[in-house]
Structure formats: C-alpha cells, structure tokens
C-alpha cells in the first residue's frame, strides 16, 4: 500500500459516494420542488395539475367558510388583484385569520380551485412571509408599513 495507492483508493471512494449523492440530488430536485405562485400568476399561467405549488397571499376578508363539522374550510387567497379558492381539511394554524398572510402548499385542481395539504401562517404576527410581500409588490398592492414587516421585533 503506497501513498499513491491510498490516494487513488480514497479518490475512487469519494467519487462513488459523491457521485451517488449527486445522482440522488438531481433525481430528487426534478420531482420534489414546490414552486411559489401568487394568485395572479396561478390564473395567468395555470401549472400542470401534478406540480407542487406554494400559493401565497392574504386570506381574503369575508371568504372563510367552515364546513358543518368544522373540519374542512374553504377560503380565498388574494394578492389584492386576483384571488383563488382554496380548500383545506384539518386544523388551521393558530395565526390563521382573515386579512393575514398565508402560504398554502398543494395542487391546482381541474376546476381551478386549489387543494391545500398544508397551510402556514407565520408565527410572529408582525411578520409577513417574504414571498407574500413580493407577490403583493408584483401586483402593485404593497404599501410600505402595511405588514408592519420591519417594525415590531427589530429596532
């Protein structure tokens, strides 16, 4: 076992392990990405139904409707120019409120509604998801200070 042999062996082992890891990453990146869309984008360019989508925006005022048993909920997510109906079954996060920023993960359905498997509202009530801020800015509906984003927790 000379130094050269050892180096060769380590090199081959490293190539195998890292090559394997790279292959796994490439395969997984293709299938497992959730793409962020605002309601306007979702309506303008509907993505394939099997594509994982993160839909972000504000919960439109007056649209939250709970089912009889209280388990399912339908609401509209808006970027203040377009809105999309979202259906979700389960317990909503503590901070879920009308007018509050949310990010929902799920798929677009063939009838144009959005089936969410996860609904996130941010933990800090002053905090607006960055993606939602960007979506609001894109739709021209963002006004500085609206979300109280940079005040509150920081100086």
């Amino acid at each position: 076992m000379t130094r050269k042999h050892r180096r060769l062996y380590i090199l081959v082992a490293a190539l195998l392990v890292f090559g394997g890891a790279a292959a796994l990453v490439l395969a997984a990146l293709d299938e497992n990405l959730d793409h962020f869309r605002s309601p306007s984008q979702l309506i303008a360019e509907p993505p394939p139904l099997d594509r994982g989508i993160r839909l972000g925006g504000l919960v439109e005022e007056g649209t939250v409707q709970r089912s009889e048993d209280g388990l399912s909920v339908v609401f509209r997510v808006t970027d203040l120019s377009e809105s999309v109906a979202v259906a979700y079954t389960g317990i909503l996060p503590d901070l879920f409120r009308e007018g509050q920023g949310v990010v929902t993960t799920g798929n677009l359905q063939s009838d144009g509604t959005f089936a969410a498997r996860e609904v996130l509202a941010k933990h800090d009530e002053n905090y607006m998801p960055r993606e939602v801020v960007d979506a609001l800015k894109a739709s021209g509906q963002w006004h500085d200070g609206e979300g109280g984003h940079s005040e509150g927790m920081t100086q």
Binding site: A28, E31, N32, L33, H35, G52, R54, E131, D134
Partner: peptide, 8 residues
C-alpha cells in the same frame, strides 16, 4: 421561487 420540501 421554489421551495425544497421534506420529499427532497
């Protein structure tokens, strides 16, 4: 904008 979730 994408997010990489647990499946990845």
């Amino acid at each position: 904008k994408v997010s990489v979730g647990p499946p990845f």
